[in-house]
């Protein structure tokens, strides 16, 4: 770890804002897991809890942004301190988006609980959600440890989630072709899957902030990707 600042209050401010980001991360992770479970178990109460819980995530993001504004104005941070404040702001924004996706998942879970289930799909969604939550957790741990190697690894593994999304996309397409009455549920599930895939992108964005924080360099676009637009025709379906 770095030497403490001569102004110890500066260290306390930086630690406080980082603690808020971790708390926010914890709330978002739980919201995603709960929303996916509510979908799988058709648990409307749990889905409602996720919907109302998003306000706390948004409030934390607001608090982090205003604390960062204060830090910039009052401490005029430079070098690693400056990069820390900038990365905290971006991570908080990414987590806030991920929280919105959890809320949206919960809303769709409520709608889907009144529709006929599509075999196996909600279990796949839950697996996807667990995978991205793990990715988020790893990204935030890498952030606290400023571990560039772990962060780079997280970027590379974004493919897994993309591949899960692609295979779920095919499954949903099959359900829709089998019976047009499945279309409504399948569309909801598709949006859910797409949103979870986006949470994976936000985990990647957080990993990139770890690299920026530690090295000052923003990684380029050369990471491996599998979220090519699925080109699945009826014949292949």
């Amino acid at each position: 770890m770095k030497e403490p600042h001569i102004h110890t209050a500066f260290d306390r401010d930086l630690e406080a804002v980082q603690a808020h980001v971790l708390r926010m991360g914890g709330l978002v992770e739980q919201a995603l897991l709960d929303a996916a479970e509510a979908l799988e178990k058709r648990d409307e109460a749990l889905a409602q809890k996720v919907r109302t819980g998003d306000a706390a995530i948004d409030a934390l993001e607001q608090q982090i942004q205003s604390e960062c504004a204060r830090l910039l104005a009052l401490r005029a941070p430079t070098a690693g301190d400056l990069r820390m404040v900038l990365s905290v702001m971006r991570i908080a924004a990414a987590l806030e988006r991920a929280g919105d996706y959890a809320k949206n998942l919960a809303k769709r879970a409520l709608v889907l609980s009144n529709m006929a289930p599509l075999d196996g799909t909600t279990a796949t969604v839950q697996r996807m959600a667990r995978t991205v939550v793990l990715r988020l957790k790893e990204a935030l741990d890498a952030y606290i440890a400023q571990d560039v190697a772990v962060a780079a690894d997280i970027r590379d593994r974004d493919r897994e989630v993309d591949q899960m999304y692609n295979s779920l996309f095919r499954e949903l397409l099959t359900h829709m072709m089998e019976d047009p009455r499945n279309i409504s549920a399948a569309m909801h599930l598709h949006f859910i899957a797409k949103n979870i895939e986006r949470v994976g992108d936000h985990a990647t964005a957080i990993a990139e902030q770890v690299i920026y924080l530690a090295t000052g360099a923003v990684p380029g676009e050369e990471r491996p990707k599998a979220d090519i637009v699925p080109d699945v025709s009826a014949a292949e379906g």
Partner: peptide, 11 residues
């Protein structure tokens, strides 16, 4: 050393 100085970590 530059980082330590400009971020206020050495006197």
């Amino acid at each position: 050393r530059t980082e330590a100085y400009i971020t206020g970590r050495i006197g």
